Amino acid sequence: MSSTLENTMQSSYQNSTDSPLLSVPRLIPMRAVCAALVLASVALAGCNRDKPVPETKPGQALASVNGEEITVLQLNEEMQRAGVPAAQQQTASKQLLQALIDRELLENEAAKEKIDRDPKVMQAIERARSLIIAQAYMQKRVGDVGRPTEAEIEDYFNKHPQFFAKRRQFAMNQLVFPASSVTPELRAAADKARSLEEVAAYLDTRQVAYGRAQVTRSTADLKPELAAKLLSMPKGQLFLVQEGQRALLTSIDAVRDAPVSLAIAAPQIAQYLATRKNKELAQAEIQRLRATAKIDYLNKDLAPDAAKPGALPAAAPASLTGMPGAPAGSGLGPESTSNDGHGDNDIGPVADTVDADARADKAALDRGVAGLK
């Protein structure tokens, strides 16, 4: 849950510069003050102990920019968010410290020009604050669902043979040209053609610019209905698909079995099931909050068409839901997936693209807390 929600955050927590430890009565021995500082610093840095920066005194300032200190805690935060491997931490620490210095310089100059008081900037800051607090609440409420059981992983594997045990791969050749070039005459020529070369010759005579592509897709990459249609086609058959501003004239060169074993698929299935469970729990929490809240739509045109008060809208724009869902295009474009064609990087459940359960999930979290995924 944490990584899913955190990767789309556009702001990060800011370390407070006000510490109750800084106002200590003079009667308290200095040794006790130092001990308290050490304990507090260790507690704050504890979550980052797997990715330590080079040893320094806890809380020690690493640099000063016009009197403003940059501390080891700030650097720890940057290191954690960057996910720096252990072997690169020394080099990364130097680079990230320079980045923090640059950020401080820019922030100081922005404050001099009162950019921090610009209404758009203030609105962005308030949005970031709202998202951070909402994220923290959801993390506390939902927590970590843990790894799915072996039985759950095996059950998903068995229920989706098109992703795994019975996965098939299609090797295809394509001509790619502007969709505006698709005329009744071109369609007729493609229907009569026995190969892509004949259509290419036709395009040459009409001076239609086109490109060539070789793509490999599997039954785990494509919409189920499209995969079924491709499986029913004979080798060499041509078919035309339009994706936005371009058209793809495709010929199936080969279809081969490309099964994936449970042992290979298990890690990806586990990650997928954990993510889906987190989304379900988040959706349930949003539903609970909506059910107990009084929500009035002052602009009735924006009110959802729902039978129950407080219910989620029946649908939401993709930019809000963030759900992978089914691909917007056919999935046949040369760059529409990262499949390498070798059968080891495109195993299902491929980013939720063809799972009916994922399509049914309305992603209530993303509606109520936009951007937290």
Rank of each mutant, 00 (worst) to 15 (best):
R290T: 03
P259Y: 10
L262W: 05
P313S: 07
A282E: 10
L273I: 04
P317K: 01
A293I: 14
G322K: 06
R256H: 08
Q271E: 10
P317G: 06
T292L: 04
L273Y: 00
A258I: 09
D301E: 15
E285L: 03
A284P: 00
P304F: 03
K294H: 14
K279G: 07
A265G: 02
R276K: 12
P267R: 04
V255C: 07
P259R: 12
L298E: 12
A258N: 14
R276C: 06
P259S: 13
K294Y: 10
V255Q: 12
P304V: 02
K308Q: 10
D301Q: 14
Q271Y: 04
A266C: 05
G310Y: 01
S251R: 05
L302H: 14
A263Y: 05
M323A: 14
I295S: 06
I295E: 08
P313M: 04
A306E: 11
R256C: 07
Q268Y: 12
S251M: 08
G325N: 11
V255F: 03
I269T: 00
I295G: 04
A274Q: 12
A318T: 09
E280I: 07
A282G: 14
N299R: 09
A263C: 05
V260N: 00
K300W: 05
D257H: 11
I286H: 00
R288M: 07
A306P: 01
A303H: 11
R290N: 13
A311L: 03
L262F: 11
A284Y: 01
P259D: 12
E285M: 01
D257I: 10
L262S: 04
L289Q: 10
K279M: 11
P309T: 05
A314K: 14
M323W: 05
G310L: 01
L249F: 05
R256L: 10
K277A: 11
Y297L: 05
K300I: 06
L249S: 01
K294G: 09
A254V: 13
P313V: 02
A293Q: 08
A318V: 14
A311E: 14
P313G: 01
Q287G: 02
T321R: 00
A282C: 08
L281C: 08
T321L: 03
M323D: 09
A263V: 14
E285W: 01
Q283C: 07
I269A: 00
A291N: 15
P324G: 00
T275H: 11
A263P: 08
P304R: 12
A303Q: 15
P317W: 08
A263T: 15
I252C: 09
A315P: 08
T250D: 10
L249D: 02
E280M: 06
